[in-house]
Write a protein that binds this DNA or RNA. Sequence first.
DNA 1: TTAATGTATATTGTATACAAAAAGCAATTT
DNA 2: AAATTGCTTTTTGTATACAATATACATTAA
Lengths: 228, 228
Amino acid sequence: MGSIFQQDMDEYLPLRDVVFKTLRQGILTGELKPGERLMEIHLANKLGVSRTPIREAIRKLELEGLVTMIPRRGAEVAQITEKSMKDVLEVRKVLDNLSVELACERITEEEKEQLQNACMDFEDAVKTGDFSMIAKTDVAFHDIIVAATRNIRLSQMVNNLAEQMYRYRFEYIKDSTQHNRLVQEHKEICDGIISGDKEKALAAIEAHIDNQEIAVLNQIRIDREKRA
Amino acid sequence: MGSIFQQDMDEYLPLRDVVFKTLRQGILTGELKPGERLMEIHLANKLGVSRTPIREAIRKLELEGLVTMIPRRGAEVAQITEKSMKDVLEVRKVLDNLSVELACERITEEEKEQLQNACMDFEDAVKTGDFSMIAKTDVAFHDIIVAATRNIRLSQMVNNLAEQMYRYRFEYIKDSTQHNRLVQEHKEICDGIISGDKEKALAAIEAHIDNQEIAVLNQIRIDREKRA
DNA sequence: TTAATGTATATTGTATACAAAAAGCAATTT
DNA sequence: AAATTGCTTTTTGTATACAATATACATTAA
């Protein structure tokens, strides 16, 4: 009994969180472009809520670094510059290394299975060529790794940093010449963690991030040239 | 000319930010205790503002990890557990290492001077025994190091992590048997960075954090025993 | 034409009002 | 005595109203 009620309870989310997720999604997919102003009344009308939840959502996005506040002028979608992305990557490298290291030490047998499956799901998604599926299975794979660290704060921080780059991920994923390499990198990370071979896993994750760095910085330069 | 106007402009802060800083300060100093509920009307009356800025400040504290939200029940000051502190420290270690490493590479001559001065200020503060002065000069010292990394995001993250431990810092600083060691550690970090000797600086910062870890975890156990 | 000024409009900042849910408590029942 | 029910109070969640500021645009003067 009680299943429907329980379900209803679980599904309850304050509007501010719904708005928060919606706006974040919009920023990460590029629907809301860097520099675009986030005007409260406009958003409120669009989402069918009042200004209050909009404002509270913006406060959180502000701390996440996805929007920039200008006092008495409001919020705008944060610009992505080469510098800001290099800053993110500089931190991400050490935190991803830490994640993999801890995951090697702390992963459970159950999670090993999940990781193996996620790795295969990603491979399948790449084969189908469905971009949104590729993106989804990629996130799922990395989520299992950070969860295996047993460190919630680390998970949050790594996710937040990864998020900053999701804004470029579509371009990255669309480049199908990279696909085989991506699958190969995932497999090596997966093998390394499952076999507890830290060195192998670390080398693989480092290569993985380095390649992302090249792709993202390249994309930024392309975007800049387009504008110029 | 225009100096007063300019000053007024600089001093403008939305109430939400004033409230944010006030509440954060309250949490870090322990005036607001872990588990204590943050009731909006009560805080609004106490600070002489309406609920709106209070709510927006709480949204930010939520993302900083200083308050915990319970839907339809409101916010409370986040509990500090041994686990949560170990999580923080695990991340802090690698980010502090990164900070020192980058600072070694990127610090300017001007900053070297500032660092040297900050190091001496800290020594002086310790000699006087003024706790709030010790805390202040300690923060100033570390601020110079993170600023020297030229990585704003890293700075924010390190500061946020350090913040989590400020909640215990007073106990730590009060223990005067530690003072000489603290000064010594600061000196070694300072020397290492100024001379560009990464290994020395890294060894020193690691020892510094390790000692803080011992002190903080110890304090948590003491607090727990008090409660029991 | 450019710069400056004034006015209207749009937008944020803050306060308040109203609705919905949770918590506390007393009366009642078992 | 313990549990349950219903009522009251408190508190959050959301919407709206009002005030202060910034922006845009037209008008005027140099």
